[in-house]
Design a protein around this nucleic acid. Structure first.
Length: 197
DNA sequence: CAAGAGATCATCT
DNA sequence: GATGATCTCTTGA
């Protein structure tokens, strides 16, 4: 259907990967069924100097995955009840990743509606927690390769033009001092599945 | 519609 | 013992 993105795609500057992921498809194949959605919103977290990045507190049991090689899934639990999906970028031992914040449902929509207990299309996966629920992503995915497993990303030739990409401050990182002002959140303009405009 | 609170737990101090 | 890279529901204008 499309081209599966190889590890080399992720082994590049995080801000670039975050923008180039817009318009590509997140795909999950499980039990012979496929769920897929177009990525419409991402955020970049780059290195220990980025106070919003979990790795700013150093290399710990939790952040170990952020130091893995490019193309590794970093999944963690937040607020005791939701998961967030990130893809590790850049070189091994440099902690950086792209948070996948929202996708526009494309395939396996009934599965997603069941998992999310709602039918509204633009509410199925319009946020990091919702997206993980819709795709059935949990802590079992943490540390797994996103280029050789059930979960992967492919380019279906729908990447937006540069003028259709909006840049904004990252969500929920007010504690990150000067780093909270960085325009490291990217989303496709005028898309209904973006978490916040 | 906007604003606020509660849910609930792995991880770090 | 405190705190989130969130979401949903309730309240009140």
């Amino acid at each position: 259907m499309g081209k599966k993105l190889p590890p080399s795609f992720f082994k590049r500057p995080t801000l670039r990967v975050a923008q180039e992921l817009l318009g590509t498809y997140l795909v999950m194949k499980r039990n012979g069924k496929t769920r897929a959605g177009k990525i419409v919103e991402t955020e970049a977290y780059v290195g220990e100097d980025d106070l919003a990045c979990h790795a700013s507190k150093g290399r710990t049991k939790r952040t170990e995955t952020l130091y893995a090689k490019a193309g590794t899934a970093y999944v963690y639990m937040i607020y005791g009840m939701y998961y967030c999906l990130n893809i590790v970028t850049e070189r091994k031992d440099f902690p950086s990743a792209v948070l996948i914040r929202a996708v526009e449902p494309a395939e396996g929509i009934e599965e997603m509606q069941r998992a999310r207990k709602t039918k509204t299309l633009h509410n199925l996966a319009s946020g990091p927690g919702k997206l993980c629920m819709a795709f059935g992503i949990g802590k079992a995915m943490n540390g797994k390769s996103i280029t050789a497993g059930a979960l992967y990303i492919e380019d279906r030739g729908e990447r937006p033009a540069a003028k259709d990409i909006a840049k904004a401050k990252r969500i929920g990182v007010d504690y990150a001092k000067h780093c909270k002002h960085y325009l490291w959140r990217f989303y496709i303009k005028s898309n209904d599945s973006v978490s916040r405009k």
